[in-house]
Every structure is written in C-alpha cells, then in structure tokens.
Design a binder for these strands. Structure first.
Lengths: 235, 235
DNA sequence: CGAATCAAATGGTTTAACCATTAAGGCCCA
DNA sequence: TGGGCCTTAATGGTTAAACCATTTGATTCG
C-alpha cells in the first residue's frame, strides 16, 4: 500500500530539479549551466553536494562537463549511449549471454529489415551499395577486420532506415555487443565472408524491388546461420 | 585515428576499479564495501572524491547505499532497472514516442509469445490462468485501474516465460512505459476491456495446445488494434 | 605580426568538522 | 521479568574553506 517515505538527500533534489528543467526543454541542449560556485548559491547547498548531483546527471547522459575557463556543465542532446552502457554491463556481468542476444536477433532482425525496405529512400539504397562495395574491397584484399566493421555499419544503417529510434537502438546495441566479443569464438574466414557478401547482395536487390518479405527471409536465414555456428551446431 | 587521452579524474579511476571487481565477481552481490572513511584511505583519496565515485556506481545500479550504523555500500545484483530508467528518459524527452514503441511492439510481441508458448511449463499456464481470473474479476466489478495492472502483469509474465532476459527486458520496458502514459490518451471502457479478456482466453488456449502460431497471431492482432486506436485510425 | 607569457575563470581535489540516521545494548521502572 | 526509553557508537550526508590543474583569452615583447 505505502511506499517508504523517501529519505531526503539534498543532491537528489538538485538532480530532480535540473533533470526536470532539461526534460521540459526549459534548458535546451547546448545550454551551459552556471558555474558550480554560482549553482551552489542558487540551490543553497555546498559545492560537494552540488557536485554529487552533477555527477549523477553526467552519468545519466543529461549533461557533459568541460574543464577550464568557459567550461562547465553543458546540457546534452539525449541519446542511447547510457542505454548501451547499461546493456553492456548486463552482458559483461553474465546476466545476458551472447546466445540470448543472438536468439533475440533471429526474431527481430527480419521484421526490422522488412520495415527498412518499406521506408527505404533511393539515397538509402545508394548508401548501402557504397558500403557493400567497400565490404567487397575488404574481401578482395582479405582485410577481415575492416570487413567486420563495414558489416556492422551496414546492419546499423539498416536500423536507421526504419526511422524508428527503438529499432535503431536495438540494432545498434545488438551489433555493437556481438562484434565486441566476436573474435572470441567466431574466427573470420574467406568462406564465411563470401557468404556474407552474397547475402547482402540479395538483401539490397530485394530492397530495390520493394520486396520486404524476400529481404526479411534472407536476413533471417543469415542470422540463423550465424547463431547455429556460434552455438556449435553444424547443419 | 586517435582518441583524446582521457583527462585523469580520480573518482573515475575509483569507479573503474570497483566496477571491475564487481563484474569479475571478486565482489559478490550482497557484499558490503568498507566504510567511506576506510575506502578513502585504501584509494588514497579524499572523502568527497570517493563519494562522487560511489554516486556514479549507485547510478549505474552496481551498488546500493544504506544509512546508519551497519549501513554502507552494498553490491547489488545487476538488473534491468538502469536500462529502464534510460529508456524512460528517452521517452520523456520526446526522442522516442509512444507510436515508435507501439510500432516496435507490433513487430516483436508475436515472436515473443511464440517463444513463450514453446517454453511454457504447466506451472506457467496455471499462473496465467490465475492472472486471467483476477482480470475477469476486475472486469466484473469495473475496477479498470486494477484491470490494467493485471493486464500489464500478464504481458510481463509472458516475457519471463521466454527464459531469455533480453525478451524479458523488452517486454517489461514496453509495457511499463506504455501503461505509464496510458490514461493520457486511451481511456479504458467496458468494451475494450472485454476484448482484452477474450484475446487472453484465446492466447492461453493456444498455449495449452502448444500452438505458437495461433498464440502469436492473436497477440499481434491485439497489439495492432491497440496501435490503431492510439494513432487515431478507425477500422 | 607572431610567439611567449600572464591572468582569470572554472572544474577537480583535499581537509576537517559537524549533522542525521540507525542498530544495539543497557537501564529503569512497573 | 518484561517492555519501553535512553545512551552510545558507527556510518552516510552535508558544509566550509582552501588549494591544484586546465583552459581560454588578453597582454606583452621581440
């Protein structure tokens, strides 16, 4: 019925006030907050307490703190970085395994590609083709590391094509985390790389034809193959 | 090519050391860290700086701080709460709208229910039926608020049935955030509530029959209807 | 004009003290 | 004996004042 009455922590009140001002756009991104020695007066608190509040806001990704004269706390444009950091913590702690992530990816990436196909602009297709050309070049000179980077960039770009920040975050966090631990268990080789290239050829062709179902099917198969290799299954 | 050399901030070093110890399980959940006045000696720093570090770790969800004698910093079991908080910030700031979230939900919740159906135990089904009975009771006495709570609990429970923490987080965060802003635009009424009940009857029946496809189809339709109402479309 | 130097603003750190909360033990009195 | 009250000590929360380190811009000098 009742929640524990919150123990009053001064710094928490400061955090709440500044956060409220940022979320309601009373403080726009780019705005510079007053200096610590001024803020401390405004909130009628001490500098130590005020700094604890700023530390929390910084950790939440709401402000950024710069050094030197004309430095100080600057209101940031909110982004998904704190979300990504939290997810990385969950993975590093073992609460979430790469198998969990990969299973999720199998279920979601098809829908994501389908949505991206619906909303793809000619510019998007051009951009993907540029990236695919770069990937092919990496394959030719057998630069696997750059190939992986390009591959990740293509997946992430398809996420942005959905024009939905939720899909964008999901796609970015999946690939960011999968690739971060990639080489631990999945060495790159010529054969797998070629498969990747061919899959993306198919996907781009399907996107051009506005065939979301085909694009979806191709990527789902692509992802399933990755998952099977990772979990040690062999066809 | 190069990243800016990190400006040395003492508190950051303290954060990194403690975080490392927690993630590598050198400090197990439940462990109590030494008192601030002792930690400050160990890290050879001041109490203010040390407290900034503790504040960051608390914000990350890695420790919890209790007051009084035998209080102090206690290592927490990592969970998805910080992730949820970050997402809530994105939504409150308007970076992510409820339409975005709802569109995502349409694509994912079918797969999620399918997976839950595959992995459902008899106990899971029993639990769902208990919840459904409670929802029906709320409907009978026209207690819409409790009905919504039960509805959310059922969706969240289906998330746990996947046995995959990624799906669990996704499901929890979607419904947590959708319901938080629910009444702003979607007033509950007798008709919609009855639809909800009937949908869940179908889903539970499909789960009993291990018919993942039917369960998936039902929930997707359910979610799509919700989305259409929210975005103002009428069939 | 350009480079070196200096000065001021600002965040980062340290120290020392005091306040507030909590748990535990002891004391008093019925 | 038992229950309630008080004291005490440990611990986080807060304050204050000073100094250090970094950055920027103005000033000075060759």
């Amino acid at each position: 019925m009742f929640k524990r009455a919150k123990q009053s922590r001064v710094f928490q009140d400061v955090v709440d006030q500044i956060q409220e001002a940022i979320l309601t756009k009373k403080l726009a991104p780019g705005t510079r907050l007053p200096a610590e020695r001024d803020l401390k007066e405004m909130f009628n608190t001490s500098r130590g307490t005020l700094r604890e509040a700023l530390r929390v806001l910084e950790q939440k990704g709401l402000i950024e703190i710069k050094l030197g004269v004309s430095g100080g706390a600057i209101v940031k444009q909110i982004d998904t970085d704190p979300l990504m950091e939290s997810l990385a913590l969950l993975i590093q702690s073992g609460e979430v395994s790469l198998e969990h992530l990969s299973e999720f990816r199998i279920k979601i990436e098809g829908s994501l590609v389908e949505l991206a196909t619906e909303r793809a602009t000619p510019k998007d297709i051009e951009e993907l083709e540029r990236m695919q050309a770069r990937a092919r070049h990496c394959y030719d000179i057998q630069d696997w590391e750059s190939f992986l980077k390009t591959d990740e960039a293509m997946h992430t770009y398809i996420g942005t094509m959905t024009r939905n920040p939720v899909f964008q975050f999901v796609q970015k966090s999946i690939h960011d985390n999968i690739h971060r631990y990639y080489q631990d268990f999945l060495p790159m080789n010529r054969e797998r790389t070629l498969e990747n290239l061919q899959d993306f050829d198919k996907i781009i062709a399907a996107m051009k034809a506005k065939d979301g179902v085909a694009a979806s099917a191709t990527i789902t198969d692509h992802v399933q193959r990755f998952h099977d290799k990772m979990t040690g299954k062999r066809p």
